[in-house]
Protein backbone atom coordinates (compact mmCIF):
# COMPACT_ATOMS: atom_id res chain seq x y z
CA UNK A 1 0.00 0.00 0.00
CA UNK A 2 3.09 2.29 -0.15
CA UNK A 3 2.49 3.24 3.49
CA UNK A 4 4.93 2.57 6.31
CA UNK A 5 2.36 0.65 8.32
CA UNK A 6 1.39 -3.00 8.60
CA UNK A 7 -1.98 -4.28 7.39
CA UNK A 8 -3.15 -4.76 10.96
CA UNK A 9 -2.09 -1.24 11.95
CA UNK A 10 -3.84 0.23 8.90
CA UNK A 11 -6.99 -1.73 9.72
CA UNK A 12 -6.92 -0.31 13.22
CA UNK A 13 -6.38 3.25 11.97
CA UNK A 14 -8.99 3.07 9.20
CA UNK A 15 -11.37 0.24 10.06
CA UNK A 16 -13.93 1.16 7.40
CA UNK A 17 -11.63 0.83 4.40
CA UNK A 18 -12.46 -2.07 2.12
CA UNK A 19 -9.09 -3.63 2.72
CA UNK A 20 -9.62 -3.47 6.49
CA UNK A 21 -12.87 -5.40 6.08
CA UNK A 22 -11.12 -7.99 3.90
CA UNK A 23 -8.20 -8.27 6.30
CA UNK A 24 -10.42 -8.76 9.34
CA UNK A 25 -12.53 -11.34 7.52
CA UNK A 26 -9.39 -13.24 6.50
CA UNK A 27 -8.27 -13.16 10.14
CA UNK A 28 -11.54 -14.74 11.25
CA UNK A 29 -13.29 -11.64 12.60
CA UNK A 30 -16.76 -12.44 11.33
CA UNK A 31 -19.80 -10.83 12.96
CA UNK A 32 -20.65 -14.07 14.75
CA UNK A 33 -17.10 -14.50 16.04
CA UNK A 34 -16.90 -10.87 17.16
CA UNK A 35 -20.14 -11.23 19.14
CA UNK A 36 -18.67 -14.16 21.07
CA UNK A 37 -15.70 -12.08 22.17
CA UNK A 38 -16.73 -10.30 25.40
CA UNK A 39 -13.81 -7.88 25.41
CA UNK A 40 -14.45 -6.89 21.81
CA UNK A 41 -18.17 -6.34 22.37
CA UNK A 42 -17.42 -4.25 25.44
CA UNK A 43 -15.00 -2.08 23.42
CA UNK A 44 -17.55 -1.73 20.59
CA UNK A 45 -20.17 -0.50 23.06
CA UNK A 46 -17.63 1.93 24.48
CA UNK A 47 -16.86 3.31 20.98
CA UNK A 48 -20.56 3.65 20.10
CA UNK A 49 -21.44 5.37 23.40
CA UNK A 50 -18.36 7.59 23.14
CA UNK A 51 -19.36 8.82 19.68
CA UNK A 52 -22.79 9.85 20.94
CA UNK A 53 -21.24 11.67 23.90
CA UNK A 54 -18.61 13.37 21.73
CA UNK A 55 -15.66 11.51 23.26
CA UNK A 56 -12.54 11.39 21.11
CA UNK A 57 -10.87 8.10 20.18
CA UNK A 58 -7.04 8.04 20.41
CA UNK A 59 -5.06 9.18 17.37
CA UNK A 60 -2.67 6.23 17.42
CA UNK A 61 -3.26 2.51 17.66
CA UNK A 62 -1.02 1.24 20.44
CA UNK A 63 -2.04 -2.42 20.88
CA UNK A 64 -4.63 -5.07 19.96
CA UNK A 65 -4.85 -3.66 16.45
CA UNK A 66 -7.18 -6.31 15.09
CA UNK A 67 -9.57 -6.25 18.06
CA UNK A 68 -9.73 -2.46 17.97
CA UNK A 69 -10.50 -2.52 14.23
CA UNK A 70 -13.16 -5.20 14.64
CA UNK A 71 -14.68 -3.34 17.61
CA UNK A 72 -14.92 -0.13 15.54
CA UNK A 73 -16.76 -1.97 12.75
CA UNK A 74 -19.03 -3.64 15.28
CA UNK A 75 -19.75 -0.23 16.85
CA UNK A 76 -20.85 1.07 13.46
CA UNK A 77 -23.19 -1.89 12.94
CA UNK A 78 -24.70 -1.33 16.38
CA UNK A 79 -25.38 2.32 15.55
CA UNK A 80 -26.72 1.34 12.10
CA UNK A 81 -28.98 -1.37 13.57
CA UNK A 82 -30.68 1.28 15.70
CA UNK A 83 -32.00 2.81 12.47
CA UNK A 84 -31.59 6.26 14.05
CA UNK A 85 -30.36 8.42 11.16
CA UNK A 86 -29.22 11.20 13.47
CA UNK A 87 -27.06 8.78 15.49
CA UNK A 88 -25.67 7.30 12.26
CA UNK A 89 -24.75 10.73 10.88
CA UNK A 90 -23.16 11.75 14.18
CA UNK A 91 -21.10 8.56 14.25
CA UNK A 92 -20.04 9.01 10.60
CA UNK A 93 -19.03 12.60 11.31
CA UNK A 94 -16.91 11.60 14.34
CA UNK A 95 -15.20 8.74 12.51
CA UNK A 96 -14.46 10.80 9.40
CA UNK A 97 -12.86 13.57 11.47
CA UNK A 98 -10.74 10.94 13.26
CA UNK A 99 -9.79 9.60 9.82
CA UNK A 100 -8.40 13.01 8.79
CA UNK A 101 -6.58 13.49 12.08
CA UNK A 102 -4.90 10.11 11.65
CA UNK A 103 -4.12 10.69 7.98
CA UNK A 104 -2.40 13.93 8.96
CA UNK A 105 -0.82 12.82 12.21
CA UNK A 106 0.47 9.27 11.78
CA UNK A 107 4.08 9.47 10.51
CA UNK A 108 3.99 6.32 8.34
CA UNK A 109 1.17 7.67 6.17
CA UNK A 110 2.73 10.86 4.86
CA UNK A 111 4.00 9.78 1.40
CA UNK A 112 1.74 10.98 -1.47
CA UNK A 113 1.66 7.38 -2.81
CA UNK A 114 0.31 6.18 0.54
CA UNK A 115 -2.44 8.79 0.62
CA UNK A 116 -3.29 8.03 -3.02
CA UNK A 117 -3.63 4.33 -2.23
CA UNK A 118 -5.99 5.10 0.69
CA UNK A 119 -7.96 7.26 -1.77
CA UNK A 120 -8.18 4.33 -4.21
CA UNK A 121 -9.74 2.19 -1.48
CA UNK A 122 -12.40 4.89 -1.06
CA UNK A 123 -13.10 4.95 -4.81
CA UNK A 124 -11.27 8.24 -5.33
CA UNK A 125 -8.97 8.22 -8.35
CA UNK A 126 -5.79 10.03 -7.32
CA UNK A 127 -2.09 10.10 -8.20
CA UNK A 128 0.97 12.00 -7.07
CA UNK A 129 0.97 15.17 -9.22
CA UNK A 130 4.52 14.60 -10.44
CA UNK A 131 3.17 11.62 -12.43
CA UNK A 132 0.54 13.82 -14.06
CA UNK A 133 2.38 17.07 -14.81
CA UNK A 134 5.91 15.82 -15.40
CA UNK A 135 8.63 18.44 -15.01
CA UNK A 136 6.20 21.15 -13.95
CA UNK A 137 6.61 23.34 -10.90
CA UNK A 138 2.91 22.77 -10.27
CA UNK A 139 3.67 19.40 -8.67
CA UNK A 140 5.73 21.17 -6.02
CA UNK A 141 2.88 23.39 -4.86
CA UNK A 142 0.11 20.89 -5.45
CA UNK A 143 1.55 17.44 -4.70
CA UNK A 144 -1.62 15.42 -5.29
CA UNK A 145 -3.94 15.07 -8.26
CA UNK A 146 -7.58 13.97 -8.07
CA UNK A 147 -9.67 12.98 -11.09
CA UNK A 148 -12.12 15.81 -11.79
CA UNK A 149 -15.35 13.82 -11.47
CA UNK A 150 -14.24 12.63 -8.04
CA UNK A 151 -13.25 16.15 -7.07
CA UNK A 152 -16.75 17.39 -7.96
CA UNK A 153 -18.26 14.51 -5.99
CA UNK A 154 -16.28 14.80 -2.78
CA UNK A 155 -15.03 18.39 -2.48
CA UNK A 156 -16.89 20.34 0.23
CA UNK A 157 -19.56 22.53 -1.31
CA UNK A 158 -18.01 25.79 -0.32
CA UNK A 159 -16.89 28.74 -2.49
CA UNK A 160 -13.27 28.14 -1.49
CA UNK A 161 -13.46 24.71 -3.08
CA UNK A 162 -14.76 25.85 -6.48
CA UNK A 163 -12.82 23.76 -9.02
CA UNK A 164 -11.84 26.91 -10.92
CA UNK A 165 -9.61 27.78 -7.94
CA UNK A 166 -7.40 24.73 -8.49
CA UNK A 167 -5.13 24.00 -11.47
CA UNK A 168 -6.97 21.44 -13.64
CA UNK A 169 -4.85 19.68 -16.25
CA UNK A 170 -6.20 17.00 -18.60
CA UNK A 171 -8.81 15.90 -16.09
CA UNK A 172 -6.57 16.01 -13.02
CA UNK A 173 -7.32 18.57 -10.32
CA UNK A 174 -4.07 19.44 -8.58
CA UNK A 175 -4.41 20.06 -4.86
CA UNK A 176 -2.44 20.65 -1.72
CA UNK A 177 -2.01 17.81 0.74
CA UNK A 178 -4.33 19.26 3.41
CA UNK A 179 -7.07 19.78 0.81
CA UNK A 180 -6.62 16.21 -0.36
CA UNK A 181 -7.02 14.94 3.20
CA UNK A 182 -10.17 17.02 3.65
CA UNK A 183 -11.58 15.64 0.39
CA UNK A 184 -10.89 12.08 1.54
CA UNK A 185 -12.66 12.86 4.81
CA UNK A 186 -15.84 13.37 2.82
CA UNK A 187 -15.29 10.11 0.91
CA UNK A 188 -14.63 8.27 4.19
CA UNK A 189 -17.80 9.69 5.75
CA UNK A 190 -19.79 8.46 2.76
CA UNK A 191 -18.12 5.05 3.12
CA UNK A 192 -19.23 4.86 6.77
CA UNK A 193 -22.78 5.89 5.77
CA UNK A 194 -22.78 3.30 2.95
CA UNK A 195 -21.70 0.54 5.36
CA UNK A 196 -24.47 1.64 7.74
CA UNK A 197 -27.07 1.17 5.02
CA UNK A 198 -25.84 -2.18 3.70
CA UNK A 199 -28.55 -4.52 2.54
CA UNK A 200 -28.05 -7.18 5.22
CA UNK A 201 -28.38 -4.74 8.11
CA UNK A 202 -31.60 -6.55 9.13
CA UNK A 203 -29.70 -9.80 9.61
CA UNK A 204 -26.91 -7.98 11.48
CA UNK A 205 -29.50 -6.32 13.69
CA UNK A 206 -30.97 -9.73 14.59
CA UNK A 207 -27.54 -11.09 15.54
CA UNK A 208 -26.71 -8.04 17.64
CA UNK A 209 -29.96 -8.20 19.58
CA UNK A 210 -28.97 -11.64 20.92
CA UNK A 211 -26.51 -10.00 23.30
CA UNK A 212 -28.46 -8.27 26.10
CA UNK A 213 -25.94 -5.45 26.65
CA UNK A 214 -26.05 -4.65 22.90
CA UNK A 215 -29.87 -4.82 22.89
CA UNK A 216 -29.86 -2.39 25.81
CA UNK A 217 -27.70 0.11 23.91
CA UNK A 218 -29.84 -0.34 20.78
CA UNK A 219 -32.89 0.71 22.80
CA UNK A 220 -31.01 3.78 24.07
CA UNK A 221 -29.86 4.65 20.56
CA UNK A 222 -33.37 4.39 19.13
CA UNK A 223 -34.48 7.05 21.62
CA UNK A 224 -31.42 9.24 20.94
CA UNK A 225 -32.55 12.58 19.50
CA UNK A 226 -30.90 15.84 18.57
CA UNK A 227 -31.43 18.63 21.08
CA UNK A 228 -34.86 20.04 20.29
CA UNK A 229 -34.82 23.49 18.77
CA UNK A 230 -37.47 25.50 20.57
CA UNK A 231 -36.99 28.97 19.25
CA UNK A 232 -38.86 29.97 16.13
CA UNK A 233 -39.09 33.11 14.05
CA UNK A 234 -42.54 34.50 13.34
CA UNK A 235 -43.46 35.27 9.74
CA UNK A 236 -42.77 33.63 6.41
CA UNK A 237 -39.32 32.41 5.43
CA UNK A 238 -37.90 32.12 1.92
CA UNK A 239 -37.72 28.52 0.63
CA UNK A 240 -33.90 28.43 0.88
CA UNK A 241 -33.79 29.43 4.56
CA UNK A 242 -36.74 27.21 5.43
CA UNK A 243 -34.98 24.23 3.81
CA UNK A 244 -31.77 24.90 5.78
CA UNK A 245 -33.68 25.26 9.07
CA UNK A 246 -35.61 22.06 8.41
CA UNK A 247 -32.40 20.16 7.60
CA UNK A 248 -30.71 21.40 10.79
CA UNK A 249 -33.75 20.49 12.89
CA UNK A 250 -33.68 16.99 11.39
CA UNK A 251 -30.08 16.71 12.59
CA UNK A 252 -28.58 16.71 9.10
CA UNK A 253 -24.98 17.68 8.49
CA UNK A 254 -25.50 20.88 6.49
CA UNK A 255 -22.65 22.46 4.47
CA UNK A 256 -20.66 25.35 5.88
CA UNK A 257 -22.17 27.88 3.47
CA UNK A 258 -25.70 26.87 4.52
CA UNK A 259 -24.81 27.43 8.17
CA UNK A 260 -23.27 30.79 7.36
CA UNK A 261 -26.37 31.84 5.40
CA UNK A 262 -28.88 30.82 8.06
CA UNK A 263 -26.83 32.50 10.80
CA UNK A 264 -26.70 35.82 8.92
CA UNK A 265 -30.42 35.54 8.15
CA UNK A 266 -31.56 34.74 11.69
CA UNK A 267 -29.34 37.42 13.22
CA UNK A 268 -30.91 39.96 10.85
CA UNK A 269 -34.37 38.66 11.80
CA UNK A 270 -33.62 39.54 15.39
CA UNK A 271 -32.27 36.34 16.90
CA UNK A 272 -29.57 36.62 19.52
CA UNK A 273 -26.24 34.76 19.34
CA UNK A 274 -27.39 32.27 22.00
CA UNK A 275 -30.50 31.36 20.04
CA UNK A 276 -28.51 30.79 16.84
CA UNK A 277 -25.99 28.65 18.73
CA UNK A 278 -28.89 26.61 20.13
CA UNK A 279 -30.20 25.99 16.63
CA UNK A 280 -26.92 24.29 15.70
CA UNK A 281 -26.99 21.99 18.74
CA UNK A 282 -28.75 19.36 16.67
CA UNK A 283 -25.93 19.26 14.07
CA UNK A 284 -24.01 15.98 14.18
CA UNK A 285 -20.66 17.81 14.50
CA UNK A 286 -21.79 20.46 17.03
CA UNK A 287 -19.02 22.03 19.08
CA UNK A 288 -20.28 24.81 21.31
CA UNK A 289 -17.00 26.74 21.58
CA UNK A 290 -16.34 26.85 17.84
CA UNK A 291 -19.98 27.53 16.93
CA UNK A 292 -20.29 30.39 19.42
CA UNK A 293 -17.12 32.05 18.11
CA UNK A 294 -18.28 31.72 14.50
CA UNK A 295 -21.76 33.11 15.20
CA UNK A 296 -20.27 36.01 17.17
CA UNK A 297 -17.90 36.63 14.27
CA UNK A 298 -20.82 36.76 11.81
CA UNK A 299 -22.68 39.11 14.19
CA UNK A 300 -19.63 41.41 14.21
CA UNK A 301 -18.99 40.91 17.94
CA UNK A 302 -15.49 39.42 17.62
CA UNK A 303 -12.66 39.32 15.09
CA UNK A 304 -12.84 41.99 12.40
CA UNK A 305 -16.04 43.41 13.99
CA UNK A 306 -17.74 43.31 10.63
CA UNK A 307 -21.37 42.28 10.64
CA UNK A 308 -22.01 40.02 7.69
CA UNK A 309 -24.96 40.58 5.35
CA UNK A 310 -27.38 37.89 4.28
CA UNK A 311 -26.11 36.38 0.97
CA UNK A 312 -28.15 37.46 -2.06
CA UNK A 313 -30.51 35.05 -3.85
CA UNK A 314 -28.01 34.88 -6.70
CA UNK A 315 -25.27 33.81 -4.29
CA UNK A 316 -27.58 31.30 -2.57
CA UNK A 317 -28.38 29.85 -5.98
CA UNK A 318 -24.71 29.60 -6.95
CA UNK A 319 -24.04 27.77 -3.66
CA UNK A 320 -26.74 25.27 -4.62
CA UNK A 321 -28.93 26.31 -1.67
CA UNK A 322 -31.96 27.47 -3.65
CA UNK A 323 -34.48 24.61 -3.66
CA UNK A 324 -36.28 26.06 -6.67
CA UNK A 325 -34.97 27.38 -9.97
CA UNK A 326 -37.96 29.66 -10.20
CA UNK A 327 -36.81 32.11 -7.55
CA UNK A 328 -39.17 33.53 -4.94
CA UNK A 329 -39.68 37.09 -6.15
CA UNK A 330 -36.98 38.81 -4.11
CA UNK A 331 -33.31 39.64 -4.59
CA UNK A 332 -32.24 38.93 -1.05
CA UNK A 333 -33.80 36.34 1.30
CA UNK A 334 -34.21 38.97 4.02
CA UNK A 335 -36.76 40.81 1.83
CA UNK A 336 -39.00 37.73 1.62
CA UNK A 337 -40.80 38.17 4.96
CA UNK A 338 -41.55 41.80 4.19
CA UNK A 339 -42.88 40.94 0.74
CA UNK A 340 -44.96 38.04 2.05
CA UNK A 341 -46.35 40.38 4.74
CA UNK A 342 -47.23 42.99 2.11
CA UNK A 343 -48.98 40.38 -0.07
CA UNK A 344 -50.99 39.11 2.91
CA UNK A 345 -51.97 42.70 3.76
CA UNK A 346 -53.08 43.29 0.17
CA UNK A 347 -55.12 40.07 0.21
CA UNK A 348 -56.81 41.08 3.45
CA UNK A 349 -57.63 44.48 1.96
Amino acid sequence: MSCYATSQELSCLFPYLERAGEYLYARGFTLEAALENDGLVERALEIARGAMKGRKRPLFCAKDFEEEAAAARLALYIIAASGNQYAIRRFADRESKLFTARLRGVPGLQAPECKASIAADLGVRARPSREVVKGSILAVYFPLAVWWTHYLRYAPQEPDWAMINRPVVKGWVLIRVDDFERLLEEAYERRVLALASREDIGYISGQLAKRPEVAELLAELRAYRPVAVKASVPGAHPPCMQAIMDAIKRGENTPHVARFAIATYLLKRGWGVDEVVDLFRSSPDFNEKITRYQVQHIAGQVGGRKEYSVPSCETMNSWGLCPTNLGCGVKNPIQYGRRAGAVAKENRA
Binding site: R153, Q157, P159, A162, M163, I164, N165, S318, G320
Partner: peptide
Protein backbone atom coordinates in the same frame (compact mmCIF):
# COMPACT_ATOMS: atom_id res chain seq x y z
CA UNK B 1 -21.99 17.82 -9.85
CA UNK B 2 -22.98 19.23 -13.23
CA UNK B 3 -23.88 22.52 -11.58
CA UNK B 4 -20.42 22.64 -10.03
CA UNK B 5 -18.93 21.86 -13.43
CA UNK B 6 -20.92 24.80 -14.85
CA UNK B 7 -19.35 26.99 -12.15
CA UNK B 8 -15.94 25.78 -13.34
CA UNK B 9 -16.67 26.44 -17.03
CA UNK B 10 -18.10 29.89 -16.28
CA UNK B 11 -15.26 30.64 -13.81
CA UNK B 12 -17.80 31.49 -11.10
CA UNK B 13 -16.10 32.19 -7.78
CA UNK B 14 -12.62 32.53 -9.31
CA UNK B 15 -10.20 33.74 -6.66
Amino acid sequence: ERRRLVDFITARGLD
